[in-house]
Design a protein around this nucleic acid. Structure first.
Lengths: 178, 178
DNA sequence: CGGCGTTTTGAGAGAGCTCAACATCGGTGG
DNA sequence: CCACCGATGTTGAGCTCTCTCAAAACGCCG
């Protein structure tokens, strides 16, 4: 989603310790106290929430350049699980230090707020897309905010993002080609 | 959603001009340049987005104490329409002034970021709920984050928030009572 | 070549949406 | 007090769509 970038937020993590995670390894779990903020520098971290019934729900997948669970910076405990998908590298910083940096000067504060705002727009967009009933409508809505379809190998990710099964999406794509 | 509150963000609007809107009246439209930030002091404003196909999609409804389109503070133009639902009152402030206030000192900056973070969590929650397939699952997920069902007269709002028709929700509620 | 994951296509069943009718409640005015 | 009205709540029946399960055709890489 967010490019690997020497932006103001990533700069804040420059002094952070680096840690690697194996596929499936947990970065934090729901209910854990929030002690660290994480910047993804490699791989991908999935944010998953489990309902009372036990159904797992993927809230987001964060790739290189993204900050893990932005909202957790203002929470005492996590509200979802953070799990590595594939070998991943994170750079971490204690929350207090992160917030000191981010709110210590107007520049970073603004960059951080802008980052939250972008994440908010993306989340609203995803919610909006999922309020549509048919695969065709959801795909149209997604295309209205994206340049082109993702390359081969990433269609399933798109299906997940749209909240439909891969079969349904493949069928819709075939329908449009023919 | 957000209580009427003398919080740091609402304070910023204390010098803002007040304006009333009639039901259906537009506060801003998609594509308009962002000039003002708005605090809702009475009534309710709907944020609606129209897909290329023309389907209207409600992104959010903002009640008293809420800020209209938080993310717009960092955008040049709006990405959705803001329309009054019922007679509503807004307090407005030029964007530049709003950002000066918000990022001028660490206190407000932090409060603003926290507000964005809360909105982000709410949006992710709604998106998460809508990724579930059945009304029963969506209702369970909603109840896991809310104390109780809304009172009579607001069931249809819940249905909309869950992304289901009112009939489907009424049926599920009846099923649980019986 | 032999796996492994992605892409395609098929058939059946389940769930919600749509359209329709009716009941209930609260307010308004005769 | 009662008739009326609109909005909310309730229930029914059919249709359509996706999900699920299943199988097969690719494509890539060791």
């Amino acid at each position: 989603m967010i490019a690997i970038m020497p932006n103001a937020i990533a700069q804040i993590f420059r002094t952070g310790r680096v840690q690697s995670f194996e596929p499936g390894q947990s970065v934090f779990r729901s209910g854990d106290p929030v002690r660290m903020m994480y910047l993804v520098t490699g791989g991908q971290i999935a944010l998953v929430r489990h309902t009372r019934a036990g159904t797992p729900l993927m809230l987001a997948r964060v790739g290189p350049g993204g900050v893990l669970a932005e909202a957790s910076a203002y929470s005492a405990v996590y509200h979802c699980d953070g799990t590595a998908r594939g070998r991943s590298q994170l750079r971490m910083l204690p929350v207090a230090r992160f917030l000191d940096h981010v709110h210590g000067a107007t520049g970073p504060a603004r960059a951080w707020a802008a980052q939250l705002a972008r994440a908010l727009q993306a989340a609203r967009m995803q919610s909006e897309i999922r309020s549509l009933n048919t695969v065709a409508e959801r795909l149209d809505a997604w295309l209205s905010d994206n340049e082109a379809l993702p390359p081969r190998g990433q269609i399933q990710d798109l299906a997940h993002s749209l909240g439909v099964t891969r079969e349904a999406l493949y069928r819709e794509l075939a329908r449009r080609r023919g």
